[in-house]
Nucleic acid binder design. Structure first.
Lengths: 262, 262
DNA sequence: CGTACACTTGAACGAAATCAAGGACCGTGG
DNA sequence: CCACGGTCCTTGATTTCGTTCAAGTGTACG
């Protein structure tokens, strides 16, 4: 479909080494003791959202370790052995898979509260590269410890299963989007969904700041960056959006929503 | 993308009533006592595959209830409250979602050993309609009982999480397929993947019998049925496949595999 | 034996990719 | 401070792949 490699913003190869340096550096910093789940601003939007105080403290202990990842650095690599899953604490990530010819394809964007690495559990290795789109921080959750705790805390088990299931639902929606919708529907849905996710995190619901490039959006939506650009321009001309670089204003959310109907 | 409704083989509306009649009818039949997991031919290809004898018997008890679904009848409906998940025991199912204009889109095909309904757990309702492509049988697994047992049997918890994770992986692959690949790659991958799944079930690896129509394949792959037909014809002309209606022979699996490379 | 449905194939059309060029923004260094 | 190079973004012209439309063939089943 792409005759030439689709060049994304940053070179994965150089990111890898960059990421490793950062990882080592950040692990030298002792985790802040104040960073407990009870004091975290995500709270209900996160995996342990439904736990009671004692259980929450226990979960907090297994998610104690934090890791800072600088913009364009790599959190984990496709093929690496999976012992941890990660919860985004702040910032944004993308996950990327690479064709055997080296063409990258973005499979997801992750915001605060999202779990990364779930897709790799079944095979014991990460299925994708995870790269930070801005300076970000994650909670490191040892999978075996999580499964242990889930055995003894039914509420956590349910919540973990729920998160896994919702990831499946999200993927199925993406599947429908990629299989059935035209370019305008895809872009409209993408913006709506991003706005909703930010809104749930407490941001304004009628404006959003994209942390990804047009190329990255295009890759995720199975389009070319030119097409994404054209669609955004068209929606702007129609008065549905206001556009100032990465700042997108939802001037008419109803019409945007309808543009994404299927 | 489709200006006209994509007509699938059978009318979902008529299937629904048909399905309900069947459901009531089949529930009148007492479950066969001989149908235990220990005696099931799927064994290692199924959820309880790694359990030891005592645990297997316990699992067998919560998956005791079977249900027969006749060709084109409906197992469950999108939006219905989800209390059970289903394991395909024999036969084939498709899951279907319908656009607000009534256009159907097939989101998955399910073979023996596959779990259906996982995508609905997060929201407590099924996300899709599940329809049998041939006369089929499923094991009914009460979700609450499954989660209960998973709490006390770590091996089952791991296996359940593994199955959920693998579903995520599978969806991500489909996402890549729909987002990046051209028609030939999609069809080639589809056939390869189906052949592999049948092979794991003990069928010949170089031949396969499609239980779905070209329309259904097309819907799943985000193509038109004409395109699917043309691609299959092209692969036949090249000597990669032999085609006799729904019987597909994999004359040159290596080349078929390469045709699906990305 | 005839009707219905699934499948195949051809021809015309269209949506999005590709190719190509120009412009805006950013950090850097003179 | 401004010039410079590098990204990123936008827009236009052309091409391409797959859809749509249309017709015809084959197969299953009453």
């Amino acid at each position: 479909m792409f005759a030439e490699p689709l060049m994304l913003a940053r070179d994965p190869a150089s990111d890898a080494s960059d990421g490793n340096l950062l990882r080592n550096a950040s692990q030298g910093i002792p985790p802040a003791l104040s960073a407990t789940c009870a004091s975290c601003s995500l709270r209900s939007g996160c995996l342990p959202g439904n736990l009671r105080d004692a259980e929450l403290a226990a979960f907090s202990a297994i998610a104690r370790l934090k890791r800072k990842i600088r913009r364009s650095a790599q959190l984990f690599c496709a093929g690496d052995a999976l012992t941890n899953v990660y919860i985004v604490r702040s910032g944004t990530f993308k996950t990327v898979t690479v064709s055997h010819e080296g063409r990258p394809k973005i499979t997801g964007f992750y915001l605060p509260g999202d779990l990364m690495g779930l897709d790799g559990i079944g095979y014991g290795t990460y299925a994708f590269d995870a790269i930070a789109l801005e300076n970000s921080e994650v909670c490191v959750v040892h999978l075996a410890q999580l499964e242990n705790m889930a055995s003894s805390v039914p509420e956590l088990l349910k919540e973990f299963v729920r998160v896994l299931s919702i990831e499946i639902t999200r993927d199925h929606r993406l599947t429908t989007l990629l299989g059935c919708m035209d370019a305008e529907q895809r872009v409209a849905r993408f913006l709506m969904s991003l706005a909703e996710r930010y809104h749930r995190l407490g941001y304004a619901s009628n404006a959003l700041l994209l942390h990804m490039t047009r190329d990255e959006i295009a890759s995720y939506l199975g389009l070319s960056s030119e097409t994404v650009s054209r669609i955004i321009s068209r929606l702007r001309r129609r008065g549905v959006l206001t556009v100032d670089q990465r700042r997108i204003g939802l001037a008419d959310p109803d019409r945007l929503s309808r543009a994404g109907d299927w």
